[in-house]
C-alpha cells in the first residue's frame, strides 16, 4: 500500500526535489549554526544567572558615567554596523558589487571599532579597577569571571565576523560570490549583534550601582 504523496503546494514542496523553504542550503545551514550558537550563549547566560542568583553579595559596581555611557556607545557602534550590513546586502541585491564592498568595509570598520572600544574598556577594568577573571576588589571572583567569559566569547564572535566579512568583501570585489553569500554573512553578523542585545542589559545594565 503506497502512501500517496499528497498534492497541494505545501506537500509538493516538502515532497522532495525542491528546497522547502525556497532558501538555499547555505542559508539554511547558517540558520542551523545560529540555533546551535545561540544555545552556546544561552548556556553561558544561564550559568551566569545561576551563579549570580546563588550569591547574595553579588557586586553591582558600574557607575553610569563612564561605564554605562561607554558601553552604550559600544552598543551604538554595533547597531550602526548592522545598518551598514543591511546596506551591503541591499547593494548586492541590485548587483552593485562596488557598493557592496564599500558597505562591507564600513561594517568591518564598525566591528573593529567595537572590538577596540571593548578592549580599552577591558584594560580599564583590569588596570584601574583591578577586576580580573579571578579576583576583584569586592571579593566575588565570579563577577569578573562571568563578565570576561561572556563578553570575551562575544568579542571572539565579532572578531571572527570581521575576518569573515573581509573574506566576503575581497571575493565580492573580485567578482566572486553571489547575493546569497553576502546575505548569509549578514545573517551571522546580525546574530552576533543580537547576542550583544542580551549581553548588554544582563551584564552591564544589571550591574549598575544603585544608590
Amino acid at each position: 500500500m503506497a502512501t500517496e504523496a499528497k498534492t497541494g503546494s505545501l506537500a509538493a514542496l516538502w515532497g522532495g526535489g525542491g528546497s522547502p523553504y525556497r532558501i538555499g542550503s547555505k542559508k539554511f545551514g547558517m540558520w542551523l549554526f545560529i540555533i546551535s550558537d545561540s544555545l552556546t550563549f544561552t548556556a553561558l547566560l544561564v550559568a551566569y544567572t545561576y551563579l549570580r542568583m546563588s550569591t547574595e553579595t553579588w557586586p553591582t559596581p558600574f557607575h553610569f558615567s563612564p561605564s554605562i555611557i561607554f558601553s552604550t556607545v559600544m552598543t551604538l557602534v554595533l547597531l550602526s554596523s548592522s545598518l551598514t550590513m543591511v546596506m551591503a546586502v541591499h547593494a548586492m541585491s541590485h548587483g552593485n558589487r562596488g557598493g557592496t564592498v564599500k558597505w562591507l568595509l564600513a561594517t568591518m570598520a564598525f566591528g573593529a571599532g567595537f572590538v577596540v572600544l571593548h578592549m580599552s574598556e577591558w584594560m580599564h577594568l583590569i588596570n584601574d579597577e583591578k577586576v580580573t577573571a579571578f579576583s576583584n576588589p569586592w571579593n566575588e571572583p565570579l563577577f569578573g569571571a562571568t563578565f570576561f567569559g561572556i563578553t570575551g566569547l562575544h568579542m571572539t564572535h565579532v572578531t571572527i565576523g570581521v575576518i569573515y566579512l573581509g573574506v566576503i568583501a575581497t571575493g565580492v570585489g573580485r567578482g566572486k560570490f553571489t547575493y546569497e553569500d553576502v546575505e548569509v554573512s549578514g545573517l551571522y553578523w546580525h546574530f552576533v549583534d543580537l547576542v550583544w542585545m542580551f549581553v548588554f542589559p544582563l551584564v552591564y545594565l544589571m550591574s549598575v550601582k544603585m544608590h
Binding site: 515532497g15 522532495g16 542550503s25 545551514g29 542551523l32 546551535s36
Partner: peptide, 18 residues
Amino acid sequence: AINFISTLIDLRVPGMTL
C-alpha cells in the same frame, strides 16, 4: 549536525516525501 539536517531537508529527490 548542520550538514545532516540541511541534506535531509534540501536534497531529497522528487517523490521522497518525509
